[in-house]
Nucleic acid binder design. Structure first.
Lengths: 112, 112
DNA sequence: ATAATATTTCGATAAACATCGAAGTGTCAA
DNA sequence: TTGACACTTCGATGTTTATCGAAATATTAT
């Protein structure tokens, strides 16, 4: 992947996180962990119209931040943790150049 | 600060980082460190019209990501490192709840 | 088949954003 | 006090986004 398109991908993903509703969704997804959450439960948590929620979910999916899997009539959403790790890794890689007080992206060394 | 407005601030800051040009500016600012960079040098680095650059700088300033200081006829831009740390800290705080493989926001323990 | 549930897609509308040339502002130098 | 330099603000234009009700799709239960 080109350097430049890596930046563009990161920007696209950050832009999706950069909306209060979607950052709220992100929060819910993180807390849900690998198992994911039903769309309906996200809707309960955030209290917004289904069509609006669906729009945001589709945007987040489009940039690889989450994915959906159907189980019966329920759609479960789960965070793509690798993507999030890569994104935070990118930010830290950028930051560590000029910010000695910050740390390089952590790798598998928390809470283990 | 309320929990909710903390989320709104984080979202606003992420949204600003979520634009290729502004993420490019961020990159330049990080590399410049505390001393900052002249607007003109950012323009040279990114090769975009001055009015466009100015618009992006003003947006980034508005959400507290950077600040400007004048020295003669030159305006120097510098990242507000505390803000960036707080933002990344927020993301890590969110993430660590559901992501045991990731680490809590690092505090002053890199490259020192 | 029909109905109920879970969610998405459609379509319309208003608001926010990105872009860039032209004109304006602050600073220094001759 | 005129001119050059370093930027910003203005203004106009086109594009993208956010929102939400209504209609459509997929799945299961009767």
């Amino acid at each position: 992947m080109e350097v430049n398109s890596e930046l563009e991908l990161a920007a696209a993903q950050l832009a999706e996180l950069g909306h209060p509703t979607r950052l709220g969704i992100f929060r819910v997804l993180v807390r849900a962990g690998r198992g994911g959450v039903a769309v309906g439960d996200i809707q309960l948590a955030l209290d917004i119209p289904g069509s609006t929620l669906s729009h945001h979910l589709s945007r987040m999916t489009r940039v690889g931040l989450m994915e959906q899997r159907r189980d019966g009539r329920t759609l479960y959403c789960s965070l793509k943790f690798e993507t999030v790790e890569a994104l935070l890794g990118f930010l830290y890689a950028e930051c560590c150049v000029g910010m000695p007080q910050m740390q390089a992206a952590p790798q598998g060394n928390c809470c283990d």
